[in-house]
Design a protein around this nucleic acid. Structure first.
Lengths: 192, 192
DNA sequence: TGTACATCAGTGAACGCGCGTTCACTGATGTAC
DNA sequence: TGTACATCAGTGAACGCGCGTTCACTGATGTAC
């Protein structure tokens, strides 16, 4: 069969999209190429017409996941500023559905063990995320705004990470609400 | 060969000890039983005289890692209170040497995907860590102290996680120092 | 005191399985003549 | 208008490899007689 000119790009896009979701749910190592392709009704051999190797997919899919996550946070911010961002990020919904959530809690530990080129692409996109949010952050200087964003992200990412690991739902909720309150009081201080 | 009565326990202990370090460096999936045993000059077959399966080792090694990490933090606390804990935890040394560091940044994402029994052992030990530090935390009520510990841990864990993932050393350092300053000002508020 | 035997931590070949990757191939369709 | 050919996204068998796990075995030493 011969395909329309945009068909290949579309398939490529679908592979990255599905991979970015599966990776967030199962980790990079938990998702095999054969299984991934079969979800899309394709066979594993065709994968290498789209990507040099799995590492290339890992890089593209991570960047896409960061981009999507930034979109969610931007949407929340537009609705209600940083408090809305915290409510979204530290929600039980986000905790229970990593598939469409922020890739940082699920994938950062694995990223740290990956190849330098992959980590560089990831870092570049992460800086973009940080800069976008720093622009909205209260503070005197850009350095100060950035510092607030780094600390804010560390807190949010760590909270979701721990809330997901823990088997006790009461503790899990307590982790989310405690960090939520801490972040809210930090933001309120800065606004004053 | 016949061995002394304490020999088997000692071997068991060495396997768990080495595994707890290797897991922190490579993740649970990154460490195979054959390789692990060969590091200890043993063969892979003998593993199953010590553990029902890999999952049992994963559980024991995670608990040991949490215990060791708690010891480090307790030692730091005794030397200089929470500021010393932050200095240790958010140091470049800790960032660069996961092997003997806190298992939470490296292993929590994988723990979240493991079996319930394993997660329960992990959670039980983590609660012990939280309670130990909450006892030292300034605050009016126990609930308040716990909340501070949960938020503090989320921040520290997230910071190390991100600082390790990022390929840019300047950004990595900025993440550590920003969160460090945030935690110090939080503690100072509470003391006042 | 000397010999036969039981113990049991550790050995290593073998298993089935899923992984990432390669490559000769298929076959529907656009294009050339 | 009709036929031969080129294109190329996707196919699927095959590869070597490392994984977790099983199991019949080994062999040094303590114990029984």
């Amino acid at each position: 069969m011969r395909y329309k000119p945009e068909h290949k790009e579309e398939t490529h896009r679908r592979i990255v999209e599905t991979a970015s979701q599966e990776f967030r749910a199962q980790g990079f190592e938990g998702v095999g190429i054969a299984k991934l392709m079969s979800v899309l009704n394709l066979t594993h051999g065709g994968f290498y017409a789209h990507f040099a190797d799995k590492e290339a997919l890992v890089a593209e899919a991570s960047v896409l996941a960061l981009d999507q996550s930034l979109d969610y946070m931007r949407a929340a911010f537009e609705q209600g500023g940083f408090p809305a961002v915290f409510s979204y990020y530290l929600s039980e919904g986000h905790r229970d559905h990593p598939t469409l959530g922020c890739p940082l809690p699920t994938l950062s530990a694995e990223v740290a063990r990956h190849s330098l080129p992959m980590r560089e692409e990831f870092t570049k996109k992460l800086m973009e995320v940080f800069e976008t949010l720093a622009a909205q952050m209260p503070g005197q200087t850009l350095a100060e705004k950035r510092a607030s964003v780094y600390a804010m992200f560390s807190t949010m990412v760590g909270a979701i990470l721990l809330a997901r690991a823990v088997s006790d739902n009461q503790l899990s909720k307590a982790i989310l609400t405690s960090t939520h309150h801490q972040l809210l009081s930090l933001i309120n201080e800065k606004v004053d």
